[in-house]
Design a protein around this nucleic acid. Structure first.
Length: 224
DNA sequence: CAGTTGATTCGCT
DNA sequence: GCGAATCAACTGG
């Protein structure tokens, strides 16, 4: 078990403001990394997003994780070293981006669920034309689209020098009281005690974070 | 404003 | 074949 973190300890552990996040930052327990990513920024293709909502996935211990059933060609990158992107395609049209965390083989990752654009707004405005600014990175697929992240970025090393994608620590201190956490809802395979963990983290009072609608069972189309 | 539904491809069984 | 870590459009009040 990884060491517990003092809940009264605000913000990042041993990371300076605005500093680029290193591989060792991501190579810790995913539940430690996830809340520390709130307020941090992700930059790619001319746009920078400040993260306001993330969700942790704990590899093979987590029935909700793509890594639950072991490595597959798609999830192989999750089983690799921390600091690499795992970008998957879902619902036939959307890309969602994760950053791999923990030790090699742990297959844990943090899904980037929502954020606000804090840089490259002109680029984002073109890329997300017709979409309200508040919604540019509201939701994992919209966040990925606004950042220009897609399957081609899977495996990209966000910690390498000169990488096209980079994470940076919060420029300003994050109020610990603003960090909210809650259990995941609507996850297939729910029921295990491990799922009682608070996997989701978000910043309160952020316009880019809406009340997350739990996945509803799709009403089966009624046959006549 | 809130609730509901269709869209559309991939990965795994 | 089926379900999915979703979004955007459309409906009615």
């Amino acid at each position: 078990m990884a060491g517990q973190q003092d809940p009264s300890s605000p913000g990042l552990t041993g990371v300076l403001r605005g500093e680029r996040l290193s591989r060792s930052f991501f190579a810790r327990d995913v539940l430690t990394v996830a809340p520390e990513l709130l307020g941090a920024t992700v930059s790619h293709a001319g746009v920078t997003v400040r993260l306001t909502e993330v969700e942790a996935y704990a590899g093979q211990a987590d029935p909700g994780s793509h890594a639950f059933r072991g490595p597959t060609p798609r999830t192989a990158v999750m089983f690799g070293p921390a600091g690499h992107l795992y970008v998957y395609f879902t619902y036939g049209m959307h890309w969602c981006a994760n950053i791999v965390c923990g030790t090699t083989g742990a297959a844990s990752a943090v899904l980037l669920r929502a954020g606000e654009v804090v840089g490259g707004e002109d680029v984002a405005a073109v890329r997300r034309e017709g979409i309200r600014r508040r919604d540019w990175a509201r939701g994992p697929a919209r966040l990925a689209t606004t950042l220009g992240l897609d399957g081609a970025l899977t495996g990209a090393d966000a910690c390498a020098a000169g990488s096209v994608v980079a994470f940076h620590a919060p420029a300003t201190e994050v109020d610990h009281a603003a960090v909210h956490t809650g259990p995941r809802v609507g996850v297939a395979g729910a029921g295990g005690d491990a799922l009682a963990h608070p996997w989701r983290f978000w910043l309160a009072d952020e316009p880019s974070v809406s009340v997350y609608r739990p996945a509803k069972p799709r009403p089966r189309r009624t046959s006549p």
